[in-house]
């Protein structure tokens, strides 16, 4: 706070630090983009220079139209949106119950949810594989949605609870005095006020589902059902020399996350602290 108030050396140091952080954060992403737009024939001669001598969008074109990229992209979009919608809906219900009711078993359920946040998810990868396999649902995107939804419910619930906690209880009570049933109060008064919270939760869950890799690797083996991370990994082994295409695919994979990130940015501080402190 009081650092770097007047002393020029401190001010210079501060800006140097800011620059260093910025470089550290952005350089890898810049590199991703740079290789993606470097023409193939220049990669080996200029692979490590900071700026290529000529640019091309060929890699993007190839990735989009000559590979299964759009398949993977579509699958991932389907899974992530499905997970985000299902999780947000379910977590909103659970968060509302935690925020507004005092009931028998509440502490136990909260404790269980906290524990699920702590134990290694990989622990259940074998049982889940066998369960899903015995139901004949391997290579099904729906099974991924169900699994991801369950994984994300605890955190999303705590997040939604913190949003509901931020809405005064008086408002619902006033609505009930005004003649609403509890559900009407929820729909007419609480729901409109919690829209930003719902949006933020959607964003969080979407990003989480978008980047999940290990369970998808285990449960999906057919090419047409692969989600983006799985598909991209097979890309890497299949075309291990075609750097430009892989990075172009990487840049494209970044787009949805970044869009959501911009959207949820302002809720990050609020959401994370409530999630973290409660843990």
């Amino acid at each position: 706070m009081t650092v770097a108030r007047s002393k020029p050396i401190l001010t210079a140091g501060k800006y140097a630090a800011l620059l260093a952080y910025l470089t550290f954060a952005l350089f890898p992403l810049y590199w991703l983009l740079k290789i993606a737009i470097t023409p193939d024939q220049l990669i080996f001669s200029e692979g490590t220079t900071l700026w290529p001598s000529s640019l091309t969008l060929d890699n993007f074109r190839t990735v989009l139209f000559q590979t299964d990229f759009l398949y993977y992209f579509g699958n991932s979009l389907y899974v992530s949106l499905g997970t985000a919608a299902a999780t947000t809906l379910i977590a909103a219900g659970a968060g509302y119950a935690f925020s507004r009711f005092d009931f028998g078993g509440k502490k136990i359920i909260i404790a269980i949810m906290l524990i699920t946040q702590m134990f290694p998810l990989l622990m259940i990868i074998a049982p889940i594989y066998k369960m899903v396999a015995s139901l004949g649902l391997l290579n099904s995107l729906t099974s991924l949605i169900v699994v991801y939804t369950a994984f994300n419910i605890p955190f999303a619930t705590f997040l939604m609870q913190s949003f509901f906690d931020g809405i005064p209880k008086d408002l619902e009570e006033a609505a009930m005095m005004d003649g609403c049933s509890r559900f009407q109060a929820l729909r007419k008064v609480i729901f409109p006020l919690t829209l930003p919270g719902l949006g933020a939760t959607l964003g969080f869950v979407f990003t989480a589902a978008w980047s999940e890799l290990l369970f998808a690797l285990m449960l999906i083996s057919k090419n047409e059902a692969m989600t983006f991370p799985v598909g991209l990994l097979t890309f890497v082994s299949k075309f291990s020399v075609d750097w430009g295409q892989m990075m172009a695919a990487g840049v494209l994979a970044l787009i949805p996350s970044c869009l959501f990130f911009i959207f949820i940015q302002r809720y990050l501080v609020q959401g994370l602290t409530s999630g973290a402190v409660k843990g």
Binding site: D170, E173, A174, A175, M176, M177, C180
Partner: peptide
């Protein structure tokens, strides 16, 4: 239920719908 009691209440926080 409160809605069926036909009572009105003024809250300390006013509880106006924002």
């Amino acid at each position: 239920r409160p809605r069926d009691r036909d009572i009105a209440m003024v809250f300390q926080s006013y509880a106006l719908y924002p």
